[in-house]
Design a protein around this nucleic acid. Structure first.
Length: 559
RNA sequence: GCGCCCGUAGCUCAGUGGAUAGAGCGUCGGUUUCCGGAACCGAAAGUCGCAGGUUCGAAUCCUGCCGGGCGCGCCA
């Protein structure tokens, strides 16, 4: 195992000793829960678990709760009557923060908050500073995220790019949420494919064609010229140098893509010292009574743990299967003391999920502590000008050169990992508002420009006292609410392993900011109003920047 | 045959129990003495694959079908 960079756990972004104050939304939720408890009794309140929603339609209030509909059968009263009682109680609790409540539809209680609440919320967001929206994890965990793990026998292609973007963004989000994350790359530098690479390089070095089942790509010929004595040295050495060269090349590509791994784990290490780590895993499995011998091979009884059939670990020839390496590798990860292991795999590996989960359990692991996330495929469309040699994948380097890192990451991250991506290269190349990533970045740059125009004195004065008591326009209230939602979006994205939610949120936030920018003139507005709007702009800029950072996309001050 | 993923507007996709289902692209029509027009506004556009079920309430949960993608080695 090779550590790259400082041998340290990534520190949580937030100071765990200084819990961030409850967000304004949490406070509101607390008030609603207390209201429910007052009306229906504590026990019933706990069981009902009412929602605090953000209604789609402005007419349905800033927030809404379904508490009355949940309580109605318990209390034995019509939902709308219950809602009315809840409304009275909530009105008393919220005081000046509340504008009004309305009972609507089948029994929703719609909550309309006063300007004062929005202004206080803005102040709370600014006070939280860079930490706003983060640190929400219920319990900080040590999480290992293994991703990319491409075979070092060929260049990275667009599928790896998606895996890299996803794994890295997930790590950024988990870390911001409050976990300690380790980024890990598993290097398959052992076995027949590596030897095959050596054979292929050697053939090229000797001016011959690689064998039919060898590696045919142009990169093999390049390696043949780079590796000294490739024609004559033992094929194992050539293979080893070939792997090292490929790995270096991959790392260069990944770093350019803003993906940095903390750990590279080499499969070869599992087999050092007479397969010590593999044997160690076998002992664990035997100790748990999970293995048996049949037809001269060593089998793992995965079928007892949800797999279709049992799997071979050690072939009758005495060789270990690839699966055996995976099992030993995961045992090693277990012993490194993580609370949770996440593997990000390509869709072509989904057939291995059941056996890996079974093996993990057979090793004595808790089934839920290993997560196997499957990335669906990437389909490039509109790439007419994207040169590619026939018969070869479009490489990750090609993609980056074509559309740039920001657009590539955005387009690969904007979709849920379990749906295929149709990557629109023509759209990704555009530098206009039709391109979502450009649109979000443009909003950020526009704020930077606006703040520069106002001047740093005016901005810092505004931040000293963001709540000026000035009345708010509708667009300002909408912007405050959208900004407030950031913490919940981060939590959802982290807990559901769904970075695409951050992309969706960032685009929506940019749209809401743009509406504010259109409706509310900032610079030169009447004194107190200008200060309040500057403060709001700063909050918007910070959160757009943070959202983009979680995706690994830059937030330029000008463009 | 079995397993996993997907099926929502013309296209690409958000939306894992709430109200009249949303966004981007595309199409059509508008906007410039104004903080970034590299922009902005508006309109048309849907049988949420189909059929049952659970629920006060279903795109969402359950069952069965249909369609598409992928996978089912003592390969790695």
């Amino acid at each position: 195992m090779t550590r790259v960079g400082p041998d340290l756990r990534m520190p949580p972004l937030m100071d765990a000793a200084a819990p961030s104050p409850a967000s304004p939304v949490d406070a509101l939720r607390g008030a609603v829960n207390a209201t429910v408890a007052a009306v229906a009794g504590k026990e019933r309140a706990l069981r009902s678990c009412p929602t605090l929603e953000r209604p789609r339609k402005a007419g349905f209030g800033d927030f809404a709760t379904n508490a009355a509909m949940l309580l109605a059968p318990v209390v034995g009263a019509p939902p709308r009557d219950v809602a009315a009682r809840l409304g009275e109680e909530l009105t008393a609790r919220l005081g000046g923060a509340l504008d009004r409540v309305e009972v609507a539809g089948p029994g929703f209680l719609n909550i309309f908050l006063a300007d004062a609440w929005h202004r206080e919320a803005l102040g709370a967001m600014l006070a939280a500073g860079e930490a706003f929206g983060g640190g929400g994890a219920a319990g900080a965990q040590r999480i290992d995220v293994e991703f990319v793990s491409a075979n070092p026998t060929g260049p990275l292609h667009v599928g790896h790019a998606r895996n890299a973007a996803y794994g890295d963004a997930l790590c950024r989000i988990l870390a911001f949420h409050g976990h300690a994350v380790e980024r890990e790359f598993y290097v398959n530098d052992f076995g027949s494919q590596v030897r095959n690479l050596g054979v292929s390089i050697q053939a090229r070095a000797r001016g011959q064609e690689p064998p039919q089942d060898g590696y045919q790509g142009a990169y093999v010929a390049e390696l043949a010229t780079q590796i000294e004595g490739a024609a004559d040295r033992p094929v194992e050495e050539v293979a080893r140098d070939g792997v090292a060269a490929m790995l270096a090349r991959m790392q260069g590509t990944l770093e350019a893509f803003r993906v940095h791994f903390d750990v590279f784990f080499f499969e070869r290490e599992l087999h050092e010292g007479g397969d010590a780590l593999v044997r160690h895993a076998y002992e664990e499995l035997e100790g748990q009574g999970r293995t048996y011998r049949s037809e001269g091979a060593l089998w793992l009884r995965t079928s007892a743990l949800g797999d279709d059939k049992d799997r071979v670990l050690e072939r009758s020839s005495g060789d270990h299967t690839y699966f055996a390496s995976d099992v030993a590798y995961h045992q090693h990860k277990r012993e490194r003391g993580f609370d949770r292991l996440i593997d990000v795999w390509g869709a072509d590996h989904h057939g291995y999920v059941a056996r890996m989960k079974a093996a993990f359990e057979a090793l004595g692991g808790e089934r839920d502590r290993l997560e196997l996330l499957i990335m669906q495929f990437v389909h490039l469309v509109g790439g007419a000008s994207m040169s590619k040699r026939s018969g070869e994948f479009v490489t990750m380097d090609d993609l980056i050169a074509d559309v740039g890192v920001d657009a590539a990451r955005w387009f690969l991250l904007a979709r849920s990992h379990d749906t295929t991506v149709d990557f629109d290269l023509d759209l990704a190349r555009q530098e206009t508002a039709e391109n979502p990533v450009f649109y979000v970045q443009y909003a950020h740059a526009r704020i930077a420009s606006l703040l520069a125009k106002a001047g740093s004195d005016a901005v810092s004065t505004a931040l000293d006292a963001p709540d000026r008591g000035a009345a708010l326009e509708g667009a300002e209230r909408e912007l405050v609410k959208k900004l407030l939602a950031f913490g919940e979006e981060v939590a959802e994205a982290a807990e559901r392993r769904a970075p695409h939610r951050i992309a969706t949120y960032a685009l929506e936030l940019a749209q809401v900011f743009t509406a504010f920018y259109r409706d509310c003139h900032v610079v030169g507005a009447d004194g107190e109003v200008e200060a309040q709007r500057l403060a709001l702009s700063v909050a918007a800029q910070r959160i757009i920047a943070r959202a983009l950072d979680l995706l690994g996309v830059e937030a330029p001050a000008s463009m």
